[in-house]
Amino acid sequence: MSDASAFDPLGLARQWMAQWEKLANEHGTELLARPEAVQAMQAMTSAAVKVQAVSNEATGRMLAAANLPSRADIDALGQRLASIEAALGRIEDRLRSGDATPSRPAVRRTRKPPRPTTA
């Protein structure tokens, strides 16, 4: 028995990996929960968001100068399309509810749970 388990070449690596994972998760989460780590992470996120905001504004101005629609314009178009989509959905629903021929045979809704088996 011990001979067989001792011959597993990945056994040691497996044990080491399990221990490393436990330690890395414990210490890693502890580290990441520290206020200074959170501050650093959120500062990076904030910086990325700021860059995006500046970039959006500059791109918007450029597009306006070139007489092209901005993202906001496309969003507005998207919203109008979404409302049209919703209206189509409602029309489809009405058509479906008015369709008397179901695509599949109706199931009976009379099922009862199996009786509990006694040991």
Binding site: L32, A33, P35, V38, Q39, M41, Q42, A43, T45, V49
Partner: peptide, 10 residues
Amino acid sequence: QAWSDPRYFD
């Protein structure tokens, strides 16, 4: 909670 701390997460 730590990662969404309002002092750091806008």
